[in-house]
Each structure stands twice: as structure tokens, then as C-alpha cells.
Amino acid sequence: MAFGPFLLLALMEGLVTSATLALAAAGLSLVFGVMRVVNVAHGEFYMLGAVLAWAVAALVPGPPALAFLAALVVAPLLVGALAAAADGLILKRLNYDPEATIVATIGLLYMIQQATLSLYGPNANPVQAPFDWRIQLPWFGYSGYKLFVILAAGLVLLALWAFMTRTKAGLIMRATQVDRTTARAFGINVDRVYMGTFALGAGLAALAGVLIVPIQQAHYLMGGDPLLLSFIVVIIGGLGSLRGTLIAALVIGLSDGVISMFFTPTLAKILATLLVAMVLVFRPHGLFGAKA
């Protein structure tokens, strides 16, 4: 294959990575932005999304597309409900103290991981893609499902943006993010906002997990990489900035695709880590973040 098409392929693979990464990182960023909670268990919500997609696919009879559609709805809802429970049972009782919640979410990470290992087992299981048509480009064929992932993530992120900027609930979340005490003085039930935000953040990670599972297989340890990459994206983009998160996800995903294809995946990770280090040294609030 000539260089041009090869680069195109690398960029398309990178876009798929960007798409799921942007979803997961948007969730992490939202939770940090509104609640000031660094959710170390975020990758486990992603993993749960994938594992639940496998379970739903196994339970729902009929064509794979139907099962997948069901998983797309059910998995994020279940994971969101679990996150809401974790918020009420753990984070709220810690008064959302930034340091205590880091330790608590580390505990949550291991609890979810071990519970999944016990119930689901140590194996990686594939989930069938909802459809398997391929796009035939002049130089190579490409998975139609991967294009669907890009499109779906784009639509969800657009909806998230509209939700945050155009709806009353989004306004309430943004006000709470700025000043939770004053928000309470105007009738905002901050506990409810936090619970909803944590559920929404987890649901976004779970959605990314569902979308990725036909490409990657479901495994109980699959949450590590997305957690790390989400942190990288959120640090580069600026904590709590949705726009920065999107741009950083594109940068990290595309460079990961290109460098992995032309060099090695390890080099891609090394460069991403270097980029984080540079941002932390020269722009500690991220490229798009507001000053804390």
C-alpha cells in the first residue's frame, strides 16, 4: 500500500480510538469538573459497559443488531445506577472530600474488578458487531461498524454538549460546578446534582465500553488503558473543559493511530506521556482549562 492510503487507514483507526476515548474522558472530566472528584474507578465503568454488553448479547435472542441496540441502552443505564448507588453510599458520606474520594474510588476499582472476575470469569469474550458490512475504498476495505462507532460517539457528544449548554439540568450542573454553596442558596439540591453527574459520567464510560466491545472483546482487566488515556486527555484538555477534552481526545487518538501504525504502539504511549509532562510543566491547567 502507498503512503497516502496507509496514512488514511492510520487516521481512521485513530479516529475510532478518539471517539471512544472522547466519550470516556468526557465522563471523567464532567465528574471532576462538577464534583471535584478524581474518579479512579472510571475505567471500571467502561469495563462494566463492555461486560454487560456481552451479557445482554448472550441473553437477548434474535439478530445481533437487536441485542446490540439493547446493550447500548441497558448497559449505560445499569452502570449509571451502580454509580448513583456508589455516590450515595460512599462519596456522599465522605462529604466529597477530594483526597478521601481518591482513596475511596481506588477501593471501588478493586471491588468492581474482583466482583466481575467472580461473576464473569477471567476470559475475554467477543461480542458480535450489530452488522458486518464493509466500506470498500479504492485502496482497502474498512469496517462499517468502526465508522458507526465514530458517528455514534460524535452524536452522543453533540447531545452532551447540547444538554450542558441548552437545558435547565445542564445549567444547574454548571452553576453547581462554579459554586455549590451559592447554588444551594438558590434552591439547587446539590446532593441530587452530584448523584446525577456521577451516574452520567459513568454512563458515558459504559457507553464507550459497549461501543468498543465488538472490536476489542470484554475482559475484566480492560479498564486500565482507558483510565490512563482518559486522564491523559483530561490533563491535556484541561480538567472540566468539555471542548478541551474533545480536542485532546482527537490529538491523542489520531497520533496513537498514526504512530502505532508507522512505528509501535509503545512509542505512541511514550509520546502521549511526554505530552502530558510538557503540558503539566508549561500549562498546568491544561490547554483549555480555566484556572482553578
Partner: peptide
């Protein structure tokens, strides 16, 4: 605290405490 304003108490805090990154219209909507 979030029930108190429902009874008709409104508060102008010392130092204003606006929602700085939000617009004027959004502050009023809150």
C-alpha cells in the same frame, strides 16, 4: 439549605458570589 429559598428567602451574599463563567441571563435563570 436548598429548601429555604422555596419559602421565599433570597440572598445577596457578601462579595456577590456570582456564577462567574455563566452569562447574565443564566445567572438570572438560576
Amino acid at each position: 439549605a436548598h429548601e429555604v429559598p422555596r419559602h421565599g428567602l433570597a440572598y445577596v451574599p457578601q462579595g456577590r458570589r456570582l456564577f462567574g463563567p455563566l452569562t447574565v441571563a443564566e445567572n438570572l435563570a438560576i
